[in-house]
Design a protein around this nucleic acid. Structure first.
Lengths: 100, 100
DNA sequence: TTGCCATATGTCATATCTGACATAATCTCT
DNA sequence: AGAGATTATGTCAGATATGACATATGGCAA
């Protein structure tokens, strides 16, 4: 994601540009919140199953360190990975959707 | 995602292994279905707004070709990108969750 | 305190995703 | 039918995510 910043000079052009910019920003926020919601659900699910990150990581074919990053909503982990991990731990799409 | 295949020989060990394998497979399926659901919503949303892929791609700061791939649920696009695009087009998390 | 276990953080080589481009296929008119 | 618009597919260099590892920090019992 580049997010090239554009200078504002003229009225109409400005409005459109700023609006688009803000709109994108809002989208970023929503994405981040979504990631955090999924992260929290992942952590809660693992804890409910009494698994350590180490053990859960084995089930998920990943490492303890990455799972820690997943659960903390670290920006370096994709939604794909978090979602897949949730599904691997048995969370249904319905339940995941409810966590949004 | 590697998905190392393991041969099955002994009973107990087998059961666990196969189960894990199937479980992972199911997780993959769920992820794919989630991706497809989001893809369909993206396409529907764009069409409802009477935008061509070309124009929508501009708003999303991407290219027509990638948007086409997003809308077709192509495996080469991440959930992150599809979700972010949905949010950028104004879809709420609630509405997105409902599409699951 | 110490020791032990769980979780968090930093880094790196490799794998995967990204936007852009070209071009092909499909649709919508006349 | 053909032309123009829209959408789909293939490819690639650069960007980002991945698993693994080392190491740091946090808890908690003795």
């Amino acid at each position: 994601m580049k997010n090239t910043k554009r200078k504002t000079v003229k009225s109409k052009w400005v409005e459109g540009t700023v609006k688009d910019f803000l709109s994108l920003d809002a989208a970023d926020m929503e994405l981040i919140e979504t990631r955090l919601a999924a992260s929290r659900l992942l952590k809660a699910t693992r804890q409910k199953q009494k698994l350590t990150q180490q053990v859960a990581a084995l089930k998920l074919h990943t490492s303890q360190s990455r799972l820690a990053k997943m659960e903390s909503g670290d920006a370096s982990v994709s939604l794909d990975l978090i979602f897949k991990s949730l599904f691997s731990l048995g969370v249904s799409r319905k339940k995941l959707a409810a966590a949004f």
